[in-house]
Design a protein around this nucleic acid. Structure first.
Lengths: 196, 196
DNA sequence: TCCGGCATGTAAGGTGTTACATGATTGC
DNA sequence: GCAATCATGTAACACCTTACATGCCGGA
């Protein structure tokens, strides 16, 4: 008696930090320490970098066979464990990067979307980036409209600082919206350069 | 033998959601249900609205005597528990709103800062808002410089999409920076209007 | 010899999420 | 009688944070 509710293997959900690590490891095999340094020193600093987050996350990725760690017994220094991505890791990364954008992802802040976009070109190529940007722009547009409507309806009843805080959010969304068009244009120029 | 390390009463740290609730309750005594609706229906939707977050948070605020709940035995509907802010709640709110901005608060996203600003005028008045905006602008400025330098140093080695993702962050910060000046100007106009 | 940088990890605790449970009232 | 809305809550779990623990190496 086959159970049709389980026809696909249940994949344990991967948190954003897991995907960030996976994407970085895909770019270049790395140890936990390497990855921590990337978070601490580069503009990816909005991610944790704390050992209590990264090492357990790496262990979970390894337990799910998305990466494999190889402990180097090099001379000098302490042994370091270098992780590299596996086939199923690569598949999971592609699936994450290729997901269509959902409406509420924008409201919760665009962090995850930007992380996906940053990794996207290497893994899925420029045309996927272009699709993503169009998708992003299309999702952003109605949300900006909603915010404008809310502001118009309520601003008279709010203290000035509350109104300004809302306007700040609106400006940020508009800024991101404009960015999508700038990025699209940049890709067009890039394409023309290659074909020209 | 007095223990000098405990000269101030240890205040349990309040998470952002707690402050959001405290600020809202300060504006108007509310029940958990009221507060959930605010998160769900207004532009404060980036905050949870899930009962599993809000009710425990309210209980913690009450346990810390920052709010007191009063269960109304009204006719009709189920009993609802309306919270109102206490004196020490008011003090805690003021302390939070008046904190100077720390450098890393900007890197972790400006959500909390904007929440503080939104509540600020009612509780601390316009002049505190002006100070806050100047402080914010001053903290933002060097961070934007850092990001620009990082981008200039690394953009040639990155895929186009990664560079664009970074530029998106930079544009957001610049947008917020410009907003601080717009907001400052708005306060100046507001002041002139009142004194004129 | 001891400090600082490399490198990995654990323990405790807090916060939030999803999903579920409960109970009363209004309207059909 | 049943569904929807009002209203509050719990339980299980996942995740991240801070703080600490460990161990090896090179240089002053």
């Amino acid at each position: 008696m086959p159970d049709s509710t389980k026809r696909t293997k249940k994949r344990a959900p991967i948190p954003i930090l897991g995907y960030a690590l996976l994407g970085l490891i895909d770019q270049k095999p790395s140890s936990g320490y390497d990855l921590r340094k990337i978070f601490a020193e580069t503009a990816m600093g909005n991610y944790s970098s704390s050992p209590g987050a990264i090492y357990p996350a790496l262990q979970k990725l390894e337990a799910g066979r998305l990466v494999i760690g190889n402990t180097e017994e090099t001379a000098g220094l302490r042994r370091r464990c270098v992780y590299r991505i596996t086939q199923s890791g690569s598949v999971a990364l592609k699936r994450w990067l290729g997901r269509p954008i959902e409406g509420d992802e924008v409201k919760r802040g665009a962090e995850e979307l930007m992380l996906r976009f940053a990794f996207m070109e290497r893994v899925l190529g420029p045309s996927a980036c272009v699709s993503f940007l169009r998708n992003f722009s299309a999702v952003l547009s109605p949300y900006i409209g909603e915010l404008e409507a809310f502001l118009a309806a309520n601003q008279d009843r709010m203290p000035l600082s509350a109104r300004l805080a809302l306007e700040s959010g609106l400006r940020s969304y508009r800024c991101t919206f404009e960015w999508t068009h700038y990025a699209l244009q940049t890709y067009k120029d890039f394409q023309r350069e290659r074909h020209g």
